[in-house]
Amino acid sequence: MLKIKNLKADIENKSILNNFNLEIKPGEVHAIMGPNGSGKSTLSNILSGKKGYDVSGEILFENKNIFELETEERAHKGIFLAFQYPLEIPGVNTNIFLKTSLNAIRKARGEKELDAIEFLKLVKLKARELKFDEDKLNRQLNVGFSGGEKKKNEILQMSILNPKLSILDETDSGLDIDALKIVADGVNSLRKNDNSFLIITHYQRLLDYIKPDYVHVLMNGKIIKSGGPELALELEKKGYENFN
């Protein structure tokens, strides 16, 4: 599904990612763990097409190079990024935003857009599954939401948009244990044979709830070790410093 070859990314002449390689097959869950400044967020930004980086190498999504694609075109193809810090968008109603987003993606894929009633049915169902307060859907997007609510809102968006590849950028940060469990349940319920996850995290704790197929350790812009879920436990024990 996703193949990254020799990815190199600089920002203002500072190297962030270097010789980065990764392959994710349909249905797989990969976790990338790394200390602060190892390039985790840069990776998720670049996969989503954020501007401002000097990038070279190859990113193949379903065997097509997506380098030249705009952010929204990547979203149309099924790439979703759950933000570490979801932005507050004043004046924009959450429900209306979700509908606009879903229909933009459906339209780009040549699918029928949902009308208000069909959409409300879908959003209510998903919100209940994630124990997301339905009143919040009528509020301005993320405005005045707690950290946990913002993260849950990301997962709600993910479950409504039903992407092929979901990138979760430190979704566990700032979550209490109950919220963490809800978020993990949400992710697990979306796991299917044909969609994949890239989970970017600092800590092993999220991986107690979402079992990855592969764990990769990212240091100084490249993957220094890959393995199964046991690697996360080893990392937690030793710490990043002693891992080199």
Binding site: K51, E70, L87, I89, T100
Partner: peptide
């Protein structure tokens, strides 16, 4: 960028922010 990752193009994202 946040709005674009949700499938809106640059102009649509800009308009949504301005309207809000």
């Amino acid at each position: 960028f946040y709005l674009m990752t949700r499938g809106l193009n640059y102009q649509e994202a800009k308009k949504l922010l301005i309207n809000g």
